[in-house]
Every structure is written in structure tokens, then in C-alpha cells.
Amino acid sequence: MSDVGQLLREWRTTRRLSQLELSARAGVSARHLSFVETGRSRPTREMILRLAARLDVPLRGQNELLLAGGYAPAWGESALDGPRLAAVLSSLRDVQAGHEPYPALLVDRHWTMIDANAAVAPLTEGCAAWLLEPPVNVLRLSLHPEGMAPRIRNLAEWRTHVLHRLDDQAAHTADPRLRELHAELAGYPGGETGERPAGLVVPLRYDDLSFFSITSVLGTPLDVTLDELAIESFLPADATTAAALARQSQR
């Protein structure tokens, strides 16, 4: 089995598709797809990208498939502090600033905090200094017993939400570092709940504040780095929280 064929088969298995289902989606014969997966047929660059698109493979994974097939990557990967991304990152920071007095932060694919607006700092007061030293992993910061966890009033519910979400992300991206992070966080105290939360969204009840979160990603990224960035925004879940955050921003 060729490297690219094996990788394609792994992605297809991860997406829980049969060869027949994927071949129908991609407009190729199941026989040809079988030959590709077993290495009997070398796929073209266009075929790899077509199959990757139907498998919803992230840009980083698409590049890995192309390299395994003997082709150059299709997508660039720019440095976060380089000039190519400066304009986009500036706009993303404007979005974060515009979200104040509510918290918002920019994270990468491993939940490393790239940036945060001024409303985030008050929430991390009292956390262990080592958790706040760059690179800060926001999930570790939130669930670690020396971090924000002692102040989360619905910790078991919030942990369940975070761990399920991280598990889904690890499955979608096939990123082993996310699996490692999941195993680490699952080992922290705090419990989990199998019960369905009441209400409309899973809340984060932090001290006397209550939030719900929104994840925003770029709609048309053509760069691996940008494809893996997200803004995590927190909005007040009640009028009391909104008023408290407004007062805090005026201090």
C-alpha cells in the first residue's frame, strides 16, 4: 500500500465512509479508489485534492497527502509574526477589541492563546503563574485545579462539554497532539456528567458570571496557519453578567 493510499484510507475510515460512498461523492469508480488505496494506482495531484475535499480534510492534512503522493504542497503555511499575515491578524485583533467588554481570545489548532482582549485578564487572576507563561494553553488553564477550575461553578458540566468538543476536534483533524491534550485534561479532577444540560446552550458559570461561547473561523482561508486559527468569544448569558462586565470595563 502506498503512503498516500494508506493516508487516504485512514481519512476515509475516520469519516466512516465506505469506498463506494466516497467514490460516489468524488465521481470516481470504486475500483479505481480501491487501486489508489492499495497502491496499485498512483493518484494524480488533482485526484488527491478531489478526494481530500470530499473527505473534508483540513489544509494541513491535504498538504500531507500531496507530499505522500510525491507532489508539492498546495497550501502555504505562513509564520504568525511574519508580514504575510499582518493585515489579517490586525483585523482579528480589531474583532477582539470590538467584543469588549466581553472576553474574546485568538487560539491556534492546539488551543494555544495567540492573543486576547482586555476582558480576559480579570478572569485569570489568581491562576498559577506557570499556567499563564507563554505559550498558554487555554484549555489547560481553564480546567487545571491551579487554574480557573476552582472558580467554575458548573465544573463537571463544563468539563464534559470541553472534553467532548476536544474529542471531536481530534477526530476531525487526526492530530495526535490533541489526543494527548485530551488525555491530560481528562485526568484532572472535576468530574463529568452524562446528563443533557438544561437550557439553550452549555453555560460557563464563573464566579457570579454566566457566559455562553461562540467560535469564529475564517470562511475562505488559503493558508494553513489561518485555517487553524479561531476566535473564542464569550457573551453574557444573563443581564447580571452584562452589567458586571460593563462596570468592570469602566474601572
Score class of each variant (00 low, 15 high):
residue 217 V to E: 14
residue 74 A to D: 12
residue 205 R to C: 07
residue 158 W to F: 14
residue 173 T to R: 11
residue 126 G to P: 00
residue 226 L to K: 01
residue 17 L to N: 06
residue 167 D to M: 00
residue 28 V to P: 00
residue 204 L to M: 13
residue 207 D to M: 12
residue 70 G to D: 11
residue 71 Y to G: 08
residue 59 L to P: 03
residue 93 R to H: 09
residue 103 P to R: 09
residue 123 L to I: 15
residue 113 M to R: 10
residue 7 L to K: 05
residue 232 E to G: 01
residue 155 L to V: 13
residue 147 G to D: 10
residue 135 P to A: 14
residue 160 T to G: 04
residue 55 L to R: 00
residue 11 W to D: 01
residue 19 Q to R: 12
residue 125 E to T: 14
residue 216 S to A: 11
residue 165 R to A: 12
residue 208 D to S: 10
residue 161 H to K: 09
residue 148 M to L: 13
residue 163 L to A: 05
residue 236 P to W: 00
residue 198 A to E: 15
residue 169 Q to Y: 13
residue 24 A to R: 15
residue 75 W to E: 14
residue 85 L to K: 00
residue 154 N to R: 07
residue 201 V to N: 08
residue 39 G to Y: 09
residue 211 F to L: 06
residue 220 T to N: 15
residue 140 R to T: 15
residue 150 P to D: 13
residue 87 A to T: 12
residue 184 E to V: 03
residue 113 M to H: 03
residue 198 A to H: 11
residue 24 A to K: 11
residue 130 W to M: 15
residue 60 R to W: 08
residue 17 L to Q: 07
residue 167 D to L: 01
residue 175 D to N: 10
residue 149 A to E: 10
residue 10 E to I: 09
residue 28 V to R: 07
residue 223 D to L: 10
residue 160 T to Q: 05
residue 193 T to V: 12
residue 36 V to M: 02
residue 81 D to R: 00
residue 224 V to T: 11
residue 135 P to C: 13
residue 68 A to K: 08
residue 200 L to F: 01
residue 234 F to H: 12
residue 220 T to R: 14
residue 8 L to K: 01
residue 86 A to G: 05
residue 194 G to Q: 08
residue 80 L to Y: 06
residue 106 L to P: 03
residue 191 G to V: 12
residue 110 H to Q: 15
residue 216 S to Y: 06
residue 193 T to E: 15
residue 51 L to S: 01
residue 214 I to T: 15
residue 212 F to P: 06
residue 191 G to A: 08
residue 184 E to D: 02
residue 23 S to Y: 04
residue 48 I to G: 00
residue 66 L to A: 02
residue 138 V to H: 02
residue 157 E to F: 05
residue 245 L to Y: 02
residue 132 L to V: 12
residue 47 M to C: 05
residue 249 S to Y: 09
residue 199 G to D: 10
residue 56 D to E: 15
residue 99 H to V: 11
residue 147 G to H: 10
residue 27 G to S: 06
residue 128 A to K: 06
residue 172 H to S: 15
residue 133 E to N: 05
residue 32 H to F: 11
residue 122 P to K: 08
residue 246 A to H: 07
residue 57 V to S: 03
residue 181 L to W: 05
residue 3 D to G: 08
residue 128 A to R: 13
residue 117 N to Y: 01
residue 107 V to S: 03
residue 132 L to S: 04
residue 19 Q to V: 10
